[in-house]
Nucleic acid binder design. Structure first.
Lengths: 217, 217, 217, 217
DNA sequence: GATGAATGAGAATTCATTCAT
DNA sequence: GATGAATGAATTCTCATTCAT
């Protein structure tokens, strides 16, 4: 009975389609993705895609929105306001870094999407992205204002760089493994990478306690 | 004579095809690119693509190789070996940053390609990428070995981060302009961005001369 | 009681379906009509079309029959047997002309149907059409027999011509409005058109009291 | 050689497609016509329809234009200006009537098209139709102005009626044969029908030399 | 009596590629 | 060396119809 009930559950079917579409869009991108394959993987009739979503483009955007919402939800209220800025930033960055580590599909989806110039207005996505970064953005900005972070840094630039540094680690997995046989999936290497990013961000690459003249660095 | 002419024409036609293909692959990616459109933009008969290259895949890889070679050529011998490591690195990074600024198509092409898991082995591309980064890679490594750069940094990680930081600035142009109305094309903003990247890399974000206790940072 | 209610509801639903189908078939023809649209316009579930009628074809024929019956009903007993043939014919034609004027959908439906060669046998429709024209047909025939109408006229031809003349006025509305900006809906123009048809039928187009030699006409 | 040449003749292929499309659109109308069937009947690959025309709609309109042009061409310069109006009109009507008789597809095509309200602007067709009727239109109008035809007739109405009378005979073939088993193809019956139409137009249906009082007619 | 969910067959349209010259 | 014509296999999308409740 329950099974039969489930078998006719539109919501569930829709979700199955979204899940299947998600996998395929992440894997192959919008253009190479095949509607037939999505339906097949979802185990439902192709027609339902058009019934529930309208067309390929719409289900694609729906996938995008779902993933962005998930990111946004997971990014909310992770900031410990009792901590000093550096600790705060560190926490937020850790959360962000490990969110990407745990959601490689999200990284790919963002990458595909950011390449599609033509695909009309992303106006509806921009607020979601912004919302997902609002805490980190605020934290960095406050750090600068309070003089904890260098006052000569442009907050926007900084946010971009920090986000980019994290993304880079997961976005270039192919390149990485091709060049150096690194394994992005390995937890230990992940933690090492995260520490590296933190070090870079907070301390730069120059050796700290150095008596050498600046010029010779 | 006629043969030479023909040969020259053939070369010219081939180059026209490569140029047209380049633009279109950069713009739309491999999957959305249309063979017809390439031929049309090149102003030559579609059949010639198959005559000269074989198929869509081959001309795509040809474009990729051409662009990578161009990058590699431009990256060679830019290192001033008389300079201390930091200056060297700065010079190489400047060169790299501005190469990306001047070749946005190259950035996109890399991004498309790195998303295409499925596309066979990239074995023939890896050496080219590596070659383009060899100087920078060596410079960073030497800096670490010589103790100018922090000895606790993983050289591979570092290279990736540094490259990623530069790429990030050009790869997320859409996001950037969407979020903050920044203009990536503006030379002044480019230089500012480059300085920002340099600062981040060499000095990190923490305010330098600080009497505050570490914990409160 | 409940049963009656249900029965009434069923009847009502069926009629709603017929009405919706009627509008849509009239507007778009059988092939372009969409079952979904019919159900939607009727405000009932699509399934009921199949429950009540069986399939698209059946509901189409049902619509056709309903419209033909309506025409037939309205055509019956309109003949004033006390009048002489010409008056009779005039009355019947007026009735016919204004029926068409008041039921433009009927005209379209006939036109669509007459174009559908393939659509099975129309055997069930023919009697209805015949019945609707039986009075006019008889009247014309009697007029010929009685010598009031020209004896050299073929009665069947004549019926066809007379019917065609009336239909023409409503069937070519698009052409008419395109060519001359005539407004078929305007009552005054309708009456004028009807008078024109009558004149043509009874008197032809040649000027009556004419001293000119036949040849020069 | 010639055969091979022909096999690669784009013009010929296009014409074959037009011919096939013509037959099928005439037979089944736009909505029921199948692109596959057109290609199959033309004996060429379906793709060529899209290559040469763009889509189904375009090839449909192309067919329409071709047929209208043919009609227009055949209608030109058929008027014998030396004849008096009645003879002129008779000649033109004969030509028109027999054109329809010889081109039943044209009649059907007009009928299908005039039912398609939705199918955008027919603006490009209107001039062709008008051109095809310009001689008849002018002749009737002159006849009225010269007093040969009744001065109380509206020229536009008249043109419509006259055209409608001819069309009627061929447009209702199904109805005709259903009702009376007439054979529209039979040349003798055609000539009889034409004479009937002429009589109706020029003399009306009332018996001419009649002593009966008008009222009893 | 009524309905939302689901489907298979088939529709138009597109694409990379090859043929014939 | 170059080209216009042609194609088969897919691809997105649609439609009348049935299932399960």
């Amino acid at each position: 009975m329950t099974i039969k009930c489930r078998k006719r559950d539109a919501e569930r079917t829709k979700q199955q389609l979204l899940n299947a579409a998600s996998e395929i869009f992440i894997d192959q991108g919008f253009d190479a993705a095949r509607v037939d394959e999505i339906a097949k993987r979802a185990g439902v009739n192709k027609r339902l895609i058009y019934l529930y979503f309208g067309n390929k483009e719409v289900i694609y955007r729906e996938v995008l929105k779902e993933r962005l919402n998930h990111f946004m939800d997971s990014s909310r209220q992770y900031m410990d306001t009792d901590q000093p800025p550096k600790k705060q930033a560190e926490g937020l960055l850790r959360h962000f870094f490990y969110y990407l580590a745990g959601n490689p599909g999200f990284v790919r989806l963002l990458a595909w999407e950011s390449l599609q110039r033509a695909r009309a207005d992303q106006s509806d996505l921009v607020p979601l992205i912004r919302a997902g970064l609002v805490d980190l953005s605020g934290c960095l900005q406050r750090g600068i204002e309070q003089g904890v972070f260098r006052p000569d840094l442009n907050p926007k630039q900084l946010l971009l760089s920090v986000v980019g540094l994290c993304l880079t680690y997961f976005q270039r997995r192919l390149l990485m493994s091709a060049l150096w046989n690194m394994d992005v999936e390995d937890p230990q290497q992940q933690e090492e990478a995260f520490r590296h990013v933190l070090t870079l961000i907070f301390d730069g690459i120059l050796a700290k306690p150095t008596g050498q003249p600046e010029e010779s660095r």
